[in-house]
Design a protein around this nucleic acid. Structure first.
Ligand SMILES: [Zn+2]
Length: 305
DNA sequence: CGGCTTTGACCTGCGC
DNA sequence: GCGCAGGTCAAAGCCG
């Protein structure tokens, strides 16, 4: 797909703080050594070095600013696309709403890994795919999570702590639906519903309502990389074999966020690796933003379908 | 003992 | 008004 057309991930950054730091350190140690015999000439050289480095940092700063601006534009673009799609959807959908109340929702669906899914899957099991155009209050997003078929728990490890407050057997699905509230409730109003897909029991459908107003409690405990994990996000398999696969990892593997700093420290002199880490970090920051993921999901589904 | 899960009861909106 | 279905409450039990 043209994801590279939206966000150019081939960063041509001259960012290698370690290289510069090492150089600075080296210069310093050289200076210390040199201080014993030569003094003034080297100081001038050192100054020249510092000025040069300052200029380089300025250039990097400029590049970063430009990148940030470009990223912002991409983000706005995606958000516009999402709004557009939502508008089109709400216009096209006949009001067959069985909804119990006219909820004000900003509804988005992350179709992750529905290999047998037709385009209807995002809305087939739930009646709330219609979006009232004028009232957007709660952000609602839905994700599909493939689980171990032998694991019948309704647990989606997304990094947040949840408190289960109910479970119901619904009419259109033999498997029960579990209701969760964020452990930070009532200060955090986020709720989620988890139910197995009626079509594919190995897939959990998690519906999130609202946005967390706090940080992820334990980002590193996210189970995506852990073999013990009962649930992990699955990648999106498109209906066409030739179509690219979009993988949206909702949980951040270790190494993102604070971990990235650690990772960066481990990287000694590998600009490519640093660039990769930076890209990952930025991607993580973006995917952490529910609005962005929603817009991205909408845009992806809009292009794939 | 505090926090979490379980589960039946209760509430609410909607269609008939 | 009644019944149904989805959503929430809250008491009881479990567990670290
Ligand atoms: Zn929360």
């Amino acid at each position: 797909m043209g994801s590279s057309a939206w966000v150019d991930t081939t960063l041509d950054l001259n960012i290698n703080p370690f290289h510069h730091r090492n150089k600075a350190l080296r210069t310093k140690s050289e200076g210390e050594m040199a201080d014993s015999d030569v003094k003034l000439p080297f100081k001038q050289e050192q100054n020249a070095d510092l000025v040069e480095e300052l200029n380089r940092i300025k250039a990097e700063n400029k590049k970063l600013t430009e990148m940030l601006t470009a990223l912002g534009h991409c983000y706005n673009d995606l958000q516009n696309k999402f709004t557009e799609l939502v508008t089109i959807n709400s216009e096209n959908e006949v009001s067959t709403s069985k909804k119990r109340k006219a909820e004000c929702e900003d509804y988005s669906t992350n179709m992750i890994g529905f290999s047998n899914g037709n385009k209807e899957t995002s809305c087939s099991d739930e009646d709330s795919c219609k979006v009232p155009r004028e009232c957007i209050k709660t952000t609602i997003s839905r994700i599909y999570v493939r689980t171990n078929p032998s694991d019948n728990s309704l647990i989606v490890r997304d990094g947040y702590q949840w408190r289960k407050y109910g479970q119901k057997v619904t009419k259109d699905n033999p498997s029960p639906r579990a209701y969760f509230k964020c452990s930070f409730a009532p200060s955090c109003p986020v709720k989620k519903k988890v139910q197995r897909s009626a079509e594919d029991p190995s897939v959990l459908v998690a519906t999130y309502e609202g946005e967390h107003n706090h940080a992820r409690p334990s980002p590193s405990e996210v189970a995506i990389l852990s073999p013990k994990c009962s649930a992990k996000p699955v990648s999106c398999a498109s209906t066409r074999p030739s179509a690219p696969t979009a993988t949206l990892e909702l949980m951040q593997p270790e190494g993102y966020g604070d971990g990235a700093k650690k990772k960066i420290q481990e990287v000694d002199d590998a600009p490519a690796a640093i660039q990769q880490v930076l890209v990952q970090h930025m991607a993580a920051s973006l995917t952490r933003n529910p609005n962005f993921t929603a817009a991205l999901a909408a845009a992806i589904s809009g292009r794939v379908i």
